[in-house]
Simulated assay, not measured.
Amino acid sequence: MTGVAAPLITVVIPAYNAEKTLAETLQSVSSQSYDKLEILVVDDGSRDRTFDLARDYSLTDHRVRVLRQENGGVARARNHGIEDARGLYIAPVDADDLWHPRKIELQLEALGKFPDGRGVAYNWYAAIDENGIIFGHSRPVLHQGTIFEPLLRENFIGNGSTPLMPRADILRCGGYDASLRDNGAEGCEDLKLYLSLAETLPFVLVPDFLTGYRFTKGNMSSNAYRMLKSHALVMAPIITRYPQFTRDIQTAEFNTARWYFKKAFLGNDFAQVKQLAPMMVRKYSSRLVVHGVQQGWRQAKRVLRTAKRALGKSSARPKIRLGSAPLPQPGTAFSDRFAATPARETISLTSSRMVDNE
């Protein structure tokens, strides 16, 4: 694959005030079935016990090294780790997210399909809460190979804790863009890097839910207005370079704004709703009308299908099914997915528990 039978992989964990979750994240990394790892915890100027916890953990797993920097944001922390890394590949994971024990093994195996293993591997994710309990999952897309255009339309990778990426290519792309934070638009650094990599590298999918992506009120992705500003700044130069994708990017921006509004509304986060509503009316009034009509039509078709089934005249098309990865079960712990061998359930694209990507 790479000329190296078992390449060293560097795991980069940016950590800021992460004392509540860091140990669990480190445990999920240390427990990987592929053990040729360098694990770098980058303490981003934490004011709690993050550094002490990471240092103590390094005494029990000598693959762990702890780096420190003044608080500069997640992009600078990741870049710090990447610059210090010795591994051929970089696997970032945020200090509150979790991995399935075979994540790295399966991703590295998937990269073997590419000459010299030069590509990016990703997988689907399970959405987990503060206690590691599953409440949804990402849409199980099947994008592989050249994925630049689909990634413009939807960030289907969906988080910063999933990909396995060649270190040399990350450096060639300039790493994560720390200037977004400097402009008050922290949040889409990972998407910007994925798009830069996708312009020249193929991507490969490991079709399983191998990342436990934690959603909490305090994490970065909860700040809708800042995330939308970040998305706009990331897409602006791409529109300049690829004007033919302008319409797709504008649709992606609308869908992103709609997703955050729905998330805030259902979560009773009325401060975010109050901030987002006037912006959406001002910027997307015509799209909102079209979307409302489309949603009404879809609802009418669902009612019609339900009525036909009740009358014994079902015309429902068979569900599209994917592989045999176990479907994340809401209400169960992410760790339960690998603590025992669960009954395997076929994945359906029509699941009502999917979490739209940001």
Rank of each mutant, 00 (worst) to 15 (best):
M1E: 05
S33W: 14
E38N: 02
I39G: 01
L40Q: 08
D43I: 00
R49D: 14
D52A: 06
L59A: 15
T60Y: 12
D61M: 09
H62K: 15
L67N: 06
A75C: 11
R76N: 15
E83N: 15
Y89D: 04
I90R: 06
A91M: 14
D94Y: 09
H100K: 04
R102T: 15
L111Q: 05
G112E: 10
R118W: 10
G119L: 01
V120M: 00
Y125W: 13
A127E: 00
A127V: 00
A127G: 02
E130G: 05
N131G: 14
I133H: 12
I133L: 13
P140N: 10
Q144A: 12
G145S: 01
G145N: 01
P150I: 06
L151I: 11
F156Q: 08
F156E: 02
N159S: 13
S161M: 04
T162S: 12
P163V: 10
D169H: 14
D169N: 14
R172P: 01
R181D: 13
N183Q: 13
E186G: 14
E186A: 15
C188T: 01
D190N: 12
K192Q: 15
A198N: 04
E199C: 06
L205G: 07
R214N: 07
R214K: 13
G218T: 12
N219E: 10
A224Y: 00
A224K: 00
R226W: 03
M227K: 02
H231F: 09
P237C: 12
P237G: 14
I238M: 03
D248F: 09
T251P: 01
T251E: 12
F254N: 07
W259A: 00
K262G: 14
A264G: 11
N268C: 13
K274C: 12
L276I: 09
L276A: 07
P278T: 13
P278D: 12
K283G: 00
S286D: 13
G292D: 07
V293I: 15
Q295H: 11
Q299F: 08
R305G: 01
T306Q: 07
A307L: 15
A316C: 02
G323W: 02
A325D: 08
L327C: 13
P328W: 02
Q329F: 03
P330L: 06
F334I: 07
S335F: 08
S335Y: 11
R337T: 05
S348A: 11
M354Y: 10
N357E: 03
